[in-house]
Write a protein that binds this DNA or RNA. Structure first.
Lengths: 213, 213, 213, 213
DNA sequence: CATGAATGAGGTTTCATTCAT
DNA sequence: TATGAATGAAACCTCATTCAT
């Protein structure tokens, strides 16, 4: 039993190592510039071993991006889910969620995902959509749910929680993209907090439940 | 006179043709996938002629992107400048500007610029910044100016026009990016109008001059 | 055992084949005119295989020249070493060595070595020196040793065996270069013998041990 | 008359400038590596102007080499002609000629000639011969004449002045080539004098007129 | 299953050379 | 006659991918 399991585990580990190496190299060099030899070297395996696990360089990109997208998406979901029980001070809860989302979106992984998908948008549009489903869209759906429930309970004032959610996220990612120059510059934590505060302020002005803070 | 002008004009035209062809091919295939032979063919010249005008494939990218960025930036600037004399109905003026900006940002040129710069963000960070200076940053600065003057004249309520401008643009580009899936899908004009309307509504809620509409 | 040896042997053979092909093509066309495709074809391998063994076209030149230089140098050394036991008739032994050296220096390999190193003397001066160390300098050192011992045993009359050796070789290579016009013409065996005879005559007049023959 | 001469003179000057530039660039980079653009730049003219004067890159090589060869040959001839009236001390006169020849052969022009002809020996054998006719062969013939006359007047002891001349030159150029490593190293004047002295000593031992010095 | 070796294809770039001015 | 611009050809090198071991 163990004897049969160990190689399977080893195989899975090797697959993980290859995908992680692939994402790292793709993020560093871009898809076309990255060469399979370097990915294999970074994963600590030989080049044909990569082809034993993944059929193609394109598959390598797809799988590694989807894996990274799942991780980022899970983090975003976690940040949004904290709005499930916002407590008395809803703006504070929104600010907390905003800061968490900004930290994720300002991370190197998020920028790499954006860059790699953008670069392939013409050649592999489904990949863009698949990644989007696992990150932005997933986050947006969850946030729409949260905001909808908050509206139902009277804590927010909107009849269109989808647009509200979209704008909440836009007020975060827009300024972040602007400040980071598409990931070229780092955005300091203090600046992230300022963005979050401004976003929450504007969002609350538009969707707050009547009582101005 | 004409006889002396023709060659210079011919040279300029050829340079223009090369840069236009370069942008078209880069936009279609991406930087690495694009090959100089195809650019030359699209420009109607021989391959070495391209190298007579531009030293490098990289220079070809840089020059063609900066040219496109200037064009897009000029359009954006024009849209923003319309806020100089907003008339009595400021929200309507904002809506008009918003629609114009959205139409520009939803265009193929804008998406290509975004994609091509993103893809080279690691290798050529200055290029990202140079393009940004000519498009987003320029637009943002102009909008900041406009909003600041409107605030001075009491038509808007904010002490931080830079953030207001940043958020105005974020409320446009964020949802647009979301709907278009990084340029993968077309965003219909009606949808663009809805985005603009929602953006102006939220913006006005936050920065309107007291009298709620 | 055999099964393990075969692949290594095969690799070595392929490397040998590549280097031999490289030398042949370089000798035929010169360094710049020679193209890697032709070398690969002559070696019976594909072009990238050449690059799998040698990093560069320049490395290809270097390695193939050094290999040929080692071969030529070994032949020259062998000719000189025959002076170790010259027998009673030293001029005859010198003549024998002279003829052997001339035959080597008149060979296509020697001329090719000279041409290829000369052509790269500005760009790759160390290569010139490395080849020289393995051919001329090596021969000169060995001959200096032989002549020095002969002088010690009273069979030659000189206190400067290095110069004697240098002149002995000069009396061979100088006229050979002159007659062959830098390798452009073949020098017949009879002509080689005449050169050798004249060289030995002059050498013996200058360094003979007193008794004229 | 002047009006007709001036352009002709200008044309000749331009041709000279082009040939000089060609030789300089060929000497610096080798034939294949040298590009016509650089030659034109060094000559201070435009590229097509070069082609107006010389039909080919190959003609450029040929003409510039022959010009340089004529110059070097004239210098050698001058050195040899000094043996026409050797005075009482013939070895001293030979030493003087030897030193002069060595200085010429150690010059950058001579080495460049050797390198450039060697490199093209396979492709352009006639060029090698033409250059040789204007340099080494011309010198050898003149020296043969001088030595023949000296032998007739009893100042030298040989019945084969051609071989004597060949060996005299060999005793100079052989050691020079050896020390300079095919022009890679400079050979100091003192070393040149030592080579000349040793050459004359050996030559005189073989061909001196009976009275040993 | 993992690997060293090999390959076919293709890209960027440079160069000698020639028109039109 | 001298030149700026243009071109056809070709070379080096790299890469993704596949056999034998």
């Amino acid at each position: 039993m163990r004897a049969a399991e160990v190689p399977a585990r080893g195989r899975i580990d090797k697959r993980q190592a290859i995908l992680d190496a692939a994402f790292a190299v793709f993020a560093r060099l871009g898809y076309e510039q990255a060469c399979v030899r370097e990915i294999a070297a970074e994963a600590g395996v030989a080049k044909p071993t990569v082809y034993n696990h993944m059929s193609d360089k394109e598959a390598l990109l797809r799988e590694s991006l989807l894996l990274a997208a799942d991780r980022v998406g899970a983090q975003c979901l976690d940040a949004v889910e904290r709005l499930r029980d916002p407590g008395a001070d809803l703006p504070a809860a929104l600010d907390d969620t905003a800061r968490r989302l900004l930290r994720i979106c300002a991370g190197e992984t998020s920028h790499a995902l954006r860059r790699l998908t953008s670069a392939q948008a013409n050649r592999l549009p489904e990949l863009v959509l698949d990644v989007r489903d696992r990150t932005g869209a997933r986050t947006l759906d969850a946030l729409t749910d949260r905001l909808g429930l908050l509206a139902l309970s009277g804590k927010l004032s909107t009849t269109d929680p989808a647009t509200a959610a979209e704008q909440f996220l836009a007020l975060l990612t827009g300024p972040l993209e602007n400040r980071s120059a598409q990931g070229t510059r780092k955005v300091a934590a203090a600046e992230q907090r300022a963005i979050a505060a401004a976003a929450v302020r504007t969002f609350w002005a538009a969707y707050g439940s009547g009582d101005r803070t």
